[in-house]
Design a protein around this nucleic acid. Structure first.
Length: 499
RNA sequence: GGCGUUAUGGUGUAACUGGUUAACACGUCGCCCUCUCAAGGCGAAGAGUCCGGGUUCGAGCCCCGGUAACGCUACCA
């Protein structure tokens, strides 16, 4: 009997409530779910809300809802409880404070008193000298007197990991084998911020240990910080979990998937009419793991969660970063839609696109604008369509060029993403930007109206945006921008070079 | 720049411990069906496996050296 290999498998996902629930969270969630449930283990959801600057209050509930929507359920978490709670890091600050004391006491961490400005200056000068930007270790060996002096000054401090000056840290990645990092390349990571909250690195290691996590299954982007985590486990004298780093989902251009280039919000997929089982199925296709179809008309690519549970093989994961291809996802979604009975199809429509709440919200926008009920499509079609393609004569205001318009749209997109999604919030964002960039309210609204509705006439814009929803509105603008930018580039390339 | 990871058609994946003309799906194109458009059926094009060496009777799979892409390089996760 080996106590290490025979103990109960426990895995976790640890999303941060910093914005819309992310498709990458669902992907890693699916893998963790499969891993745990294939081994009669436990799948845990932990909320990593230690970044109070980026914290979004509504985000946590959206994470719960989206993950459940896609069909994943967890055995322990903030909303379902469990034996190793609390499962929200903001409620565990005392635990981190105690643990960081252990590190301080045994010499594997130290207090550091530089201000953010000083660190920024340090980084800049290192960069200028073409050196790798790293903490210079100035406060690694402060005496008790020096520390007292800084404290007397009232200087805030952080606590950093004291990475050994020499040697290297190696660890095993279950999919790649041994990976090593020379300590020259491992920075003295901040473990505890001056606001008293831990960073990911500390909180993650402490929680994983306290929650008896046996396998850390996370995205590839974490590989380079894994040596810091290993050092922490050692400093505490704890056993290492197994590490599995999964390939990163990519945009079409192969960069890490991002909202700039791809819809990543699970709320978007929900509202844009994707079936959760199709999205889940599609994510299961990313990075291998499932038996591949090999004969003509082989339907091995289409599977349910229970089938994935049966067939998914972690040894078959392929490590190249898979492109998240919306075209294939749509095909798959279509397959699922076609398989529904007409009655089920009707139910899906009623639940999403034609949901009562959605229709009710749209009533005030159209009631005064139509004379027969049959005209609803005339004024509200843009709310029931996937793509709007306004022509340049429609979206470019008089006295503006295409270039100006697209540049402004890019700014507008950023402003709207940051805006409070209410009538007044949107109004404020749009008008503020307009003043800043000297775009009249009229130009501003005309552009947005063209992008969103494909017409010069529509129900009131801001209210329409509220009804249509943040995720889909943002996506529509983003797609418009990408499309037009590409068209512009193509046009430029076709122009004969001046002799 | 430094460090790390990865590399099979446009995209997602296959190819048992090295073994025949590198397979399937999406996409693209064509044909059939059909009032149209889809769906469905049939078919085609598209990679010689990042590049260069090596080992071997034989390499997508093994070895060496490059290259490129991506990730990390925060008091973000």
């Amino acid at each position: 009997m080996n106590p290490e290999t025979d103990k109960e498998i426990r895995v976790r996902i640890a999303p941060s409530p910093t914005g819309d629930p992310h498709v990458g969270t669902a992907y890693i969630g699916l893998l963790n779910y499969l891993y745990a449930n294939q081994r009669a283990g436990k799948f845990i959801l932990r909320i990593e809300d230690t970044d109070r600057a980026r914290f979004v209050a509504t985000s946590e509930q959206q994470i719960f809802d989206s993950l459940r929507w896609i069909g994943l359920t967890w055995d322990e978490g903030p909303d379902v409880g469990g034996p190793y709670g609390p499962y929200r890091q903001s409620e565990r600050t005392e635990i981190y404070r105690e643990h960081v004391q252990i590190l301080l006491a045994n010499g594997s961490a130290y207090r550091s008193f530089e201000t953010a400005e000083e660190l920024e200056a340090m980084r800049k000068s290192q960069l200028a000298a073409k050196l790798p930007p790293r903490y210079n270790g100035a406060h690694r060996e402060l005496t008790a007197e020096q520390i007292a002096a800084f404290e007397a000054e009232g200087r805030p401090s952080v606590i950093r990991l004291k990475v050994p000056a020499e040697g290297e840290t190696a660890f095993r990645d279950e999919l790649r084998g041994e990976i090593k990092f020379s300590h020259n390349n491992v920075d003295d990571q901040v473990l505890m911020k001056s606001d008293g909250f831990p960073t990911y690195h500390l909180a993650n290691v402490v929680d994983d240990h306290l929650m008896h996590i046996t396998d850390v299954i996370r995205a590839e982007e974490w590989i380079s910080s894994t040596p810091k985590h290993v050092l922490l486990y050692r400093a505490f004298g704890w056993h290492l979990p197994r590490f599995w780093h999964m390939p990163l989902l990519r945009n079409i251009d192969k960069s890490k998937i991002s909202k700039r280039k791809n819809p990543v919000s699970l709320i978007y997929y929900q509202q844009a009419g994707f079936l959760p089982q199709a999205l889940l199925n599609f994510l299961g296709l990313m990075g291998g793991g499932m038996p591949a179809p090999t004969e003509k008309n082989d339907t091995a690519e289409i599977f349910t969660l229970p089938q994935a549970l049966q067939q998914f093989d972690f040894n078959k994961i392929s490590l190249g970063g898979p492109v998240f291809d919306l075209v294939k996802l749509k095909w798959l979604n279509g397959e699922y839609l076609r398989k529904l009975t007409p009655e089920q199809f009707f139910d899906e429509l009623k639940r999403t696109t034609f949901a009562d709440d959605y229709l009710r919200a749209l009533v005030p926008l159209i009631q005064t604008r139509i004379e027969t009920l049959a005209q609803v499509g005339d004024v509200a079609a843009f709310l029931f369509t996937d793509e709007i393609k306004p022509t340049p004569d429609l979206f470019i205001p008089k006295k503006r060029t295409l270039e100006e318009t697209l540049a402004f749209t890019a700014e507008l997109l950023i402003a709207l993403e940051a805006a409070d999604w209410t009538h007044t919030g949107l109004d404020l964002a749009i008008r503020t930007l307009g003043t800043e960039k000297e775009w009249s309210v009229k130009e501003n609204f005309m552009l947005l109206r063209a992008i969103l509705t494909g017409s010069t006439q529509s129900p009131p814009l801001l209210e329409s945006m509220e009804v249509f929803g943040r995720a889909r509105t943002i996506d529509r603008i983003r797609r418009f921008l990408t499309r037009e930018l590409e068209a512009q580039k193509r046009a430029a390339n076709q122009k004969p070079k001046p002799a």
